Simulated scan of single mutants.
Amino acid sequence: MKVIAYAARTAGGALQPYEYESGPLGPNEVDVRVTHGGICHTDLAAIDDEWGLARFPAVAGHEVVGEVVAIGAAVDEVALTIGQRVGVGALAGSCFRCESCISGRTNLCPRRDALVLRGDRGGFAHHVRASDWRHVYPIPDSMPSEHAAPLMCAGTTVFSPLIANRVLPTHRVAVVGIGGLGHLALQFLDKWGCEVTAISTTEDKQADAERFGATSFIASREPGALRAAAGSFDFVLSTVSGDLPWDDYLGILSPQGRLCVAGVPDRPISVSALGLVSEAKEIVGGIVGTVAQTRQMLDFAARHAIRPEVEMFALTDFEQALDRVRKGNVRYRAVVDFT
C-alpha cells in the first residue's frame, strides 16, 4: 500500500508530503486509516532532533485515531474488525516474550515499537501500521475521535502513574503544570476521588485548573508559596518539560511521599540527598501506560466524560499547529483533522 505521510527532511524543517510503500502486512500487524492526529511535545522533539535520536526523513505523530483497514492473519478478529474505530499511541507494539511483557509491563519492553522514533513510519500520515494488534485500542462509542487522539499519549501518560504508584482516593495530590498533560491529570485525579491541588507559575490558569477539578491552587512564583505548602502532599505529579526547584518540590511532600516526573526537564534533576533520606521520600519516572492500563484509561475516561480540551487544525494548517505547540500557546491539545 502506498502511504502519504508528512515528514521533516532535516532537523527543524517544515513538514513536506512524503510517500512510501508499506510492504506486506505481517501476521500481527494492523493498518489504520488516520482520521485524527494529536500533536505532542515529543513530536516536536523528534522533528527538531532535540534528543539526537531522530532519523530523517522524520515522520512524527503518535496520537492516532482512525479506522482499521487491514489486519494480519494472526490478529484476533473478535478484538479488531475492518472498519472499527481505534487508537494507536506512543507504543505501537512490544515483543510479548520478554520478562517485562510476560509480567504485563509492555511499556518497558526493550523491543517496544515507539511510534514517534520510527523514522519515516510515524503517525503524521494518512495510514499508519501498528506492529502488534494488542497495541491497537477500540475507542468507546461515546468518545469523539478528536478527544480520543490526545488520550493515546497524554492521557495514558498521566493515568498510568496513578496505578503504578498506588494513588488512593484518600491521598492529597498536586499536579505541577496546567498544560497538555496537566489539564488531563487534574480531571483523572478529580474523578479518582483525590483532593487535588494545581501548581502553576502564575494565577493565569487558576480558573481553568478549578474547572478541570482542582480544589486548591498554588502560584509557585509567589514568594513563600511552596514553603507554605511544606509536607502537604502524598503524591506530586510533575507534567512540565522545564527545570524546577526540585528541593522545593521535595519539600511539599509528606513523609514517604513520592514525586513522579512525567515531563522531561531540560537538565539533570539535582536534589539534596538529605531531603530524600530524612523522610524516605522518592522520585520516580512516569511513562505511557501498559496495554492493560491504556485500555483502563479509555474506559475510565469514557465512564466519567473526561475529555481533553482541544484546538482543531486542518491539514493545510499543520505548520501553524506545530508552531503553536512549540510556543506553548495551545489550550490544551492540538489535533489535526486528516480527513
Rank of each mutant, 00 (worst) to 15 (best):
L151P: 02
F318Q: 10
A90K: 00
E21H: 06
P161S: 12
Q320W: 10
K281Y: 01
L15Y: 06
L315G: 08
I163W: 11
D76L: 00
A305M: 05
T106C: 01
G213Y: 00
S241I: 05
D337G: 08
A74E: 11
G66D: 06
G104E: 00
I178F: 04
G13K: 10
A262T: 15
P57C: 00
D247C: 07
A225F: 08
H147S: 15
R324S: 14
P169N: 06
F338M: 02
R227H: 08
S103K: 09
A262Y: 02
G193S: 03
G242C: 05
S131M: 13
A228G: 09
E311K: 03
G66E: 12
L115D: 09
S100G: 03
R134D: 08
A321R: 14
R303Y: 04
E195C: 12
G263E: 03
A74S: 15
L44G: 11
V284Y: 09
F124Y: 00
I199H: 08
G89M: 04
R227F: 07
R9Y: 09
R307C: 00
P150N: 15
D323Q: 09
L15P: 05
L322V: 14
I39G: 10
S238L: 02
D141N: 06
Y18R: 13
W192Y: 01
R258V: 14
V136F: 10
L162S: 11
V86D: 05
G66C: 06
G52E: 06
E311W: 01
P144T: 03
L181A: 05
P245K: 04
A8M: 11
Y332V: 14
G72I: 00
A198R: 06
L250S: 08
A321M: 07
L25Y: 05
V3C: 02
L298A: 06
C98K: 04
T10S: 10
V261N: 03
F159A: 15
E319S: 07
K281L: 03
A228I: 08
I287C: 13
G231R: 12
V240Y: 07
V310I: 03
W133M: 09
G286V: 03
V196S: 01
A207K: 12
P138R: 01
L226M: 07
Q84P: 09
A273D: 14
A79N: 10
R97K: 05
R267N: 10
T294M: 07
D337N: 14
V264I: 15
G61Y: 12
E222H: 10
I39C: 10
V116H: 12
W133E: 06
V69G: 09
S145K: 01
M297N: 02
F124S: 00
Q293I: 01
G104S: 04
A154P: 14
V34N: 07
H171S: 12
G26F: 09
M1T: 04
K281M: 01
L117C: 08
P144W: 04
S232E: 14
